[in-house]
Simulated assay, not measured.
Amino acid sequence: MAEVTVGVLALQGDVREHLAALTGAGATAVAVRRPEELERVDGLVVPGGESTTISKLAEAFDLLDPIRKRIGAGLPVYGSCAGMIMLATEVLDGRPDQQSFGGIEMTVRRNAFGRQVDSFEAPVELAGVPGPSFHAVFIRAPWVERVADGVQVLGRVTEGPGAGRIVAVRQGNVVATAFHPELTGDRRLHRWFVDLVRGATDGPGQHRFAE
C-alpha cells in the first residue's frame, strides 16, 4: 500500500488521540500548526475541541485560507465534533465572528445535543464502513440540520437523545462526524479515511476529487 502522511490540526483539542489513531490505521501522522507543515500532508484531520477557539487560532496561525485552498484543491479532510463545525458552510448558535474552513455544504447546529453534562454514547451505523455499529461518543456534539444535494449522509443516531439526527456526512474528499472515534479503540473510521487519502492522492501535493 502507498505510504501517506496525514496531518492533525494541532491548535487545540484531542490532537494526541487522533495522531495515535492514524498511526494505528497505517498512516504517517504529523501535527500541523504552520502553513508549511500543511503543504507536506496528503490528508488532514480537524479534531474535536472548541470550535470558536480553533477558528481564532487558525486565523492567528495564518491557516484559515491555506486550509480552505487545499480543501478546494481536493485535499481529503476528516473532522470530528468541533471539526464537523469547522467544515460546515453554515453554523447555527456560533459566535458572530466565527469562521470555518467550509468543504461540506451543510448547516450544523453547534452544541445541539446539549452541554458537557449531556454527553452520551450511542450506536451509529456508517455507510461504507464495514463491520458492526460504531460505539459513538458524543461530547457537546453538533448535529447536521440541512445538507445540499451533493452531500452524502453516512450515519444517523439510531437511539437515545436526538434519535434520527444526521451525525456523519461526506462531500467529495471531505468527511465529518459529530462523534469522537478517536476516543475509542475502534480504528475502522480512521482506516477508512486513510484509504480515502490513498485513493485520492496522485503524488505529493496532488489530489483528485472523489466521486
Rank of each mutant, 00 (worst) to 15 (best):
S133H: 13
E145K: 01
L63R: 06
V169S: 14
A10H: 01
P47S: 03
P35R: 05
H190C: 15
G24C: 06
A2S: 10
V167I: 04
G131W: 07
L183S: 07
F113V: 01
E90N: 05
G131V: 07
L126C: 10
G94C: 03
V46L: 15
D14G: 12
W143L: 11
I71W: 10
R109H: 13
V137H: 08
P35S: 04
M84P: 10
L183V: 06
N111T: 03
R115K: 12
D14S: 14
K56C: 06
V174G: 03
V169H: 10
V144I: 02
G114P: 14
D42I: 04
E105C: 05
K56F: 05
V175R: 09
V41M: 09
A148D: 12
A60M: 11
F134I: 00
H135W: 15
Q99Y: 04
P132E: 15
K69A: 12
L57W: 15
P161S: 00
H18G: 02
A27N: 11
R165P: 13
Q171N: 11
G103A: 06
H190Y: 11
G150W: 05
V15S: 02
G150H: 12
R110V: 00
C81E: 08
E39Q: 02
D14L: 09
A168Q: 10
S133R: 09
T52S: 12
Q98V: 01
L19M: 12
V117I: 10
R110L: 09
G74K: 02
D195F: 06
G94S: 13
G162V: 01
F193A: 09
E17A: 11
L19N: 02
R33F: 05
A20G: 11
L22R: 02
V6D: 05
V15A: 01
F61E: 07
A178P: 13
A148M: 15
G164S: 13
I67G: 13
V4D: 07
H135I: 01
D202Y: 11
R95A: 08
Q116G: 09
